[in-house]
Design a protein around this nucleic acid. Structure first.
Length: 564
RNA sequence: GCCCUUGUAGUUCAAUGGAUAGAACGGAAGUUUCCUAAAUUUCUGAUCCAGGUCCGAUUCCUGGCAAGGGCACCA
């Protein structure tokens, strides 16, 4: 339809002598303005030396003729917009498509294989709401990509060696702990270790030494040559800690609706990373300075980044280089997308610049995108200070709130997860999300449950009407002269999905679904459906709404409860 | 000091360079003999400041002011 309009207008503009003018066929934010709006008259005004309204007058007849019965009206409005409103016939034809399972999907990326990295909690720390934010946005982004026909390979990357590990294990060693029971215990140990690291020179030295030792032992865990009894005990403690952490993460990811195809660890990436780094030093891409190996980002207008510390341990940068190679070895992909919090954009700029020099092919297909941080109204979160809200705590709290209105634990969980995800996905990625633990657990209004509730009510009606009504294909029932706004809004879904994909912005879908749910709720409140002369027609709309909401919620990863 | 991001109702967020800047929460007042009131209807109220580009600027550019993040041995 959009293309048809564009074609007609283009042809007319050429006739008027303004064929070069670029214009847009857009969908007005306010449906009262129509289903499509053309701004060609304003755009051509200067070239033609005529007023926009005069040009619009000249364009309208061709549109009326060209669109025929599909257009209910073609009107000139405002400064010179040509507003086109679709006829009931055209809208109903599109609504029929909305019943299909594939409604909203497109094939823009058919056959492409894309690896998407997100979440990335670190073992030996607790998973906090920041990681949960990443997981939620990442999952929605992945699903959005899947809706374009691409194959998505999900991966997460965790730091199982490095200072944060040493900080936690140092505390366990000091306290003589040999068996780690829970993720909470690890979180507590990490906080203690991090505090000691900052407050005591002695502790700092010990932790640094332990860090180097862990690298060594973990690196040689295969053959364990020359391991002392102490080394073995440390390795066991490390293994147990990682296992407990990952078990907790997997549980949380399951609650959040993510299942990873690949889990990478720092310990896997250290070796390929170090190999690549030493190779790069030989080639002159990286250089030694003050005992460390660094990349001079200044030559590309960036800053210097350390790849290997003067103690000989690799940093995050080297591990990321190793990870890039490791991904390439494990899976064939066309693109690699890495999603992290905004605080890492600086790092990734320099990292990608370095990767460009080290492995141009890998750099070319790798892309980094950032999402905002979750910020507490009470101040900045820091696991060091121990004032974090863990993902576990937050979910538990939400479930408690949801349980007040749902006796069914399954539904309560779905509502809680829906509320959490919506809170994160409703705003544009990139800017920070201000999280007020007191107020943000909203289950009313602009929220996940709002969408879920609208869907549940729609399903309930269709169910009540019974299968005998054959709502979908009935054309005999009465229908209005002009289509419902709800119907017109439903037909926009595929365009919304495409926009969200282009901008890589799940919030576009979230905003749309909220508008859709609101429209449905008004429809539901104002129109009697069951038992009316146009029952079949309205049930058709209800079914189209259900499919649209179901598919939209799926993209966001928000569960769709059966009952509420 | 340098670099990046962001400044929109009291609060939390929208607005593909377009029309009367939309929602939600909060506050005020209504709507259930009627398909689930987690709903619905009405009212309340905002583009940080100053220039510039454009037919048209919340959006793009420049300069202020303010907030957040990052700037070699953390991830």
């Amino acid at each position: 339809m959009e293309d048809r309009i564009k074609e007609i207008v283009q042809k007319e503009l050429t006739k008027l002598g303004a064929g070069d003018v670029s214009f847009a066929v857009e969908w007005p934010a306010d449906l009262a303005h129509g289903d499509y709006a053309v701004n060609a008259a304003m755009a051509a005004s200067k070239v033609l030396g005529k007023s926009p309204r005069d040009i619009a007058e000249a364009l309208v007849p061709a549109l009326v003729e060209g669109l025929g019965e599909d257009a209910a009206s073609v009107l000139i409005a405002g400064p010179g917009f040509i507003n086109i409103t679709l006829s009931e016939r055209a809208v109903s034809a599109r609504l029929a498509e909305a019943g299909e399972e594939s409604w909203g999907r497109n094939e823009d990326e058919n056959g492409t294989r894309i690896m998407v990295e997100y979440g990335n909690p670190n073992p030996f720390k607790e998973m906090h709401i920041g990681h949960a934010t990443g997981a939620v946005i990442g999952e929605a982004s992945a699903r959005l990509i899947e809706y374009s026909g691409a194959t998505v390979l999900r991966d997460t990357f965790g730091g199982d060696v490095g200072p944060q590990v040493a900080k936690a294990l140092w505390v366990f060693q000091k306290d003589g702990v040999t068996d780690i029971a829970s993720a909470q215990e690890i979180g507590k140990a990490y906080t203690q270790g991090a505090t000691a690291y900052e407050e005591s020179e002695e502790a700092k030295a010990e932790i640094d030494a332990l860090n180097t030792r862990i690298y060594d032992i973990v690196g040689r865990q295969e053959d364990q040559e020359g391991f002392s009894e102490e080394d073995r005990a440390l390795l066991r403690l490390w293994q147990k800690g990682r296992e407990v952490s990952m078990e907790e993460f997997n549980q949380l990811f399951e609650l959040l609706g993510t299942k990873y195809d690949y889990t990478f660890f720092d310990s896997d990436t250290t070796k390929p990373g170090m190999d690549a780094v030493l190779d790069a030093v030989a080639k002159g891409v990286l250089e030694e300075s003050e005992g460390a190996i660094i990349y001079r980002g200044e030559k590309k207008g960036l800053h210097t980044l350390v790849f290997v510390t003067s103690r000989g341990t690799p940093t995050y940068e080297t591990k990321d280089i190793g990870l890039a190679f490791l991904k390439e070895m494990r899976a064939a992909t066309d693109r690699v997308l890495i999603l992290t919090a905004v605080e890492q954009v600086g790092h990734f700029k320099v990292f990608l610049a370095a990767l460009e020099d080290i492995a141009p092919m890998l750099a070319k297909k790798t892309e980094h995108a950032a999402h905002g941080l979750l910020q507490l109204t009470t101040g900045k979160m820091s696991s060091r200070k121990g004032n974090v809200i863990t993902a576990r705590e937050l979910i538990t709290e939400l479930v408690t709130a949801a349980t007040e209105r749902n006796s069914d634990p399954v539904v309560a969980l779905q509502v809680a997860i829906g509320a959490l995800k919506y809170m994160i996905l409703r705003s544009a990625p990139g800017s920070n999300i201000i999280f007020d633990p007191e107020k943000s657990l909203s289950l009313d209004g602009d929220s996940g449950p709002y969408l879920q509730y609208a869907l549940v009510r729609a399903r309930s009606i269709v169910e009540k009407a019974g299968k005998g009504s054959a709502a979908k294909n009935d054309t005999s029932s009465e229908r209005p002269e002009t289509p419902y706004v709800l119907s017109r809004l439903i037909t926009r879904f595929p365009e919304i999905i495409r926009k969200a994909q282009t901008l890589r912005a799940p919030h576009v879908v979230a905003q749309y679904l909220t508008q859709l749910a609101s429209e449905w709720n008004s429809f539901y409140a104002n129109e009697r459906i069951i038992g009316e002369a146009d029952e079949a027609y309205k049930l058709g709309i209800a079914n189209a709404f259900i499919k649209t909401m179901e598919n939209g919620l799926w993209v966001l990863g928000i569960p769709a409860p059966e009952k509420m």
